[in-house]
Amino acid sequence: MNMLCHGEMPIDTENDIVMARKSVREAAVSLGFGVTDVTRIVTAASELTRNIYVYAGSGIMRWQSINENNLGLELVFEDHGPGITDITLAMEPGYTTGKGLGMGLPGTKRLMDEMEIMSEIGKGTTICIRKWLRR
């Protein structure tokens, strides 16, 4: 695997959402994503880091470039919060257990090429998203 860029940062405060957007923007730009894809990736990162902050309190975001036939960017969001009771329901547009619009998870999936959610009640949630560079 060609590790062009990678990093991680804790998500503990509201300001970390802004810092996460900056880090992800830098990584996506350095990999050569166009402005619209950069915006999609940064917006997805903003949604998922806010979910960590709002629902779990704290967690971690990791990013790394991936190279499988094609170059891409993978972001992983991990927390030890309450977990998602029903992932299918959580992916329904408009469904929310909080004060949000219920657009974060289904919207993020539309913005990215791949999205995997692993969640265990009482143990936490890990969400992995990927975007591939089109050439």
Binding site: T39, R40, L101, G107
Partner: peptide
């Protein structure tokens, strides 16, 4: 609103 933001906003479902 920038073009890239308009695209993302609609795709996010907002």
């Amino acid at each position: 609103m920038r073009a890239c933001v308009a695209v993302t906003t609609v795709q996010l479902g907002l």
